[in-house]
Design a protein around this nucleic acid. Sequence first.
DNA 1: AATATCCGTATTTTT
DNA 2: TACGGATATT
Length: 712
Amino acid sequence: MPAPWLDELNPAQREAVTHGDGPLLVVAGAGTGKTKTLVCRVARLIEQGVPPQRILLLTFTRRAAAEMLARAGRLLGGRSGGGTAKVWGGTFHATANRMLRIYSQALGLRPDFTVMDQGDAADLMGLIRSELGLARGKRRFAQKRTLVNIYSRMVNAQEKLADAIRVHFPWCADDIDGVRRIIEQYTRRKREQNVLDYDDLLLMWNVLANAPEVGATVADRFDHVLVDEYQDTNPVQAELLRAMRVGRPNIMAVGDDAQSIYSFRAATVRNILDFPQHYPGTHVVTLEQNYRSTRPILEASNSIMEQARERYTKDLWSDRPSDQLPVLTTCLDEPNQCNEVCAKVLAHLEEGIPLQRQAVLFRAGHHSDQLEVELGRRNIPFRKYGGLKFVEAAHVKDMIAFLRILENPYDGMSWFRVLQLLPGIGPGNARRVIEVLRGDCAAEPAQPDALDQGVVSPLRRLFEQSPSVPPAARKLFAELRQALADCMGVTLDGEERTPPAPEGEPSSSSGAPPSLPAQVERLRRFYEPVFTEVYENPTIRLRDLEQLEQVAAGYRSRARFVTDLTLDPPEATSDLAQPPHLEEDFLVLSTIHSAKGCEWDVVHVIHAADGMIPSDMAVRDEAGVEEERRLLYVAMTRARDWLYVYFPLRYYHKRFALGDAHGYAQLSRYLTGSVGTHFERRSAYRDETDDRPVGTGSVGEVDAWLNRLLGP
DNA sequence: AATATCCGTATTTTT
DNA sequence: TACGGATATT
C-alpha cells in the first residue's frame, strides 16, 4: 500500500519520513519543507500501525501542532483523519501540564494546581521584594521582571544563581543575596499556594520522567517522540526528553542551527549539535532544497549568514529564478517608512496579492506603533502577533483571577489581585483577609482531603465565616462572596437564594455548579460595575470581556479554560483598528520571533537600523550580536517572492529620557559590505511613486532642525 | 496605618 | 505607558 503522498517528497525528505526505528535528526534549513516532513512522518507512523495516542509531537506553539495534525489527518483521509486528534501534540509546557494532571499524585502535587504566567510570577516576586524591604534605600534593586528572568535563566539553563547573575545579569551582582532570599520565598509560596509557574512545569515533568518507577510508566506511553524547532530547546527540555527515551530509541528532532533565536529563554544550540552524542546511532538527514524563496532572496539571506562567526553546514539552494532582487529602501524617518510600507502593501494588493499573504516584521513589539496608527488611518485592516496579548490586559487578568480562585482557592496571588479591586482594600487589608481565609495560622498546609463537596477550605471559610473588611469595602465584598458562591453552586445562609440553575436543575443549598459560560457571565455581572470605577475607557475594555465570554462558550471545563488561557493565550490583541466593514483579509504584523515557521509572499522588514536590529539590549556580548544576525536571517527567509527591507535615516524618539531629541541612525551592521550587492537600493523620499508627496518627512525635518536650535 | 495619588524613569524577544 | 517609590490623604 504505497501512500501517494510519499511521491511528492524529495529524496532527503522521504528518507526522513520512511526512517525506521532509532533516533533521527533532521537538519532542515529555512523553507526546506520541514513541516511537511514532520506531517508526513506522523501520517506514515499512523499508517504503519502506531496508535496515534502513542505519538508525542512537541512544537513551539499549539497552533503549529494543531495545523500539523490537521494536515496529517488530511493525508490519511477517511474517518477522523486516522485518529490524529488522539496524538499528543503541543508545546512542552502544555504537554507538561497535561502529564502532571495525570501523574500529580506521584509527585505529591495536588491535581487542581493552577498555572502562573510570567506576569503573575513577576507580581509575586515584586510583592516579596517589597515585603523584604529590598526596594528601600537609594540603591536600585533588580526589578521584578529582572528577578523572574534571573530565576528562569538559572532554572532552565541549570546554572548556579551566582553564575547566572555573573554572566547574564552582571549589573545585579551586588544584589545576589537579596535575589537568593526572594527566590527562596517565591518557591515556598508557590508550593503553599498549589501554583506552578512555567518553569515548574518543565522541572516537574523532568523529575517525573526521571523518577525511579513512575518515570518508566510515563515514558512507556509513547512509541515515538517528535520534536520540532529543536534548536530552540533548553537544557531542561533536552534532559527530560532523554529521560523519556531511556531504552526507547524512537525520537525524531527537527531543527536548524542557523535559526536559533531563543537564547534569552536559555535555549542552546548545543542541543541540536550534540543530539548525535546524546542519542548514539542517530541517523542524520539534511534538507537543503529551499522551496519557499526565490533565488535572489535566498542568496541575500545566505550572504547574511556568510559573515556569521560559526559556519553552518547546510548549503541552501532554490530553483526558483527571479529577476526581482530584494529591495533595501532608505527612508527619511519613521513616518516616511510608514508611508512607504503602506504604499507597497497597497501596490501588491492591487496586483492581486491579498493582505494575508503579506507581513510586516520587526524586532520589538512597539516597533510597529506608528505603523499601526497609519494603517488605521488608511483603513487597512491588520492583525498583530506577538505584541501585548489579550490576556495581559489588567481587566482580563482580573477575570481570570476570579476563575482561578474557584479552581484553586489556595491561589494567593489571585486573591490578592481580586481583593484589591474593592475600595478601601490595598495590599495590607488584602493580606489580612487572605490570612483569615487560609485559616490564619500559616502552618496549615494545603491538604488534598480539604476537598469536600466541591468546596475547598478558603472558599468555604469565605462562605461560612465571612472575614471583616473595611467599611468602604463591605457592600462589594458581600457581592463578591455571593458571586463566588453562585459559581460554586452554593447557597449562602441568610442570603437570597441562588438564581435557578440554567438547565432546569433544582437549586439546592449545594447544587450542581452552573456551566462555565454561566459562571463567567455571573462574574462579569459582579465585575462590571467595579471595573467601570477602577479603569479608564471602560467601553473598549468591555468588549474584551465579551470576547472572553465568547471564548469561554467553547469550553466545558473551567480548569481547561483557565489553563489554556495562560499556556496558550489567544493570539493577537482584539483588532482595535477594525472598522465596521467585516473584511476577512488583513495584513499581518508580527515580531520576528513570532514569525518563526511562517511564510508570506511579500515580507516587509522594518527598522533595519543598528540599535533596532540588532537591538541595543543585545549587543553587550558577541553571542548577542550573533543571535541578532540569525534573527534578521529568520525574518528575511520568511519571504517567498518579494522582500523589502526598510531603513529610516533619523529617529526623533527621545532615546532614554535625557539627551538629544533625535538621532541619526546607522544602517544595520548586518546589511553593509558585500551583503548590499544582493539588494536593489531605493530611497523612499525620492521614489517616483504616484503616492502623495511625502509631506511628513519634510515637516519632520523642520522639526528636527528646530529641536537642534532648542537643544543645549 | 493604610490607601490613593502623583511623578520620574526605564523600555526585547515568549512558553 | 506602566511601574515603582514618595508623598498626600483618609
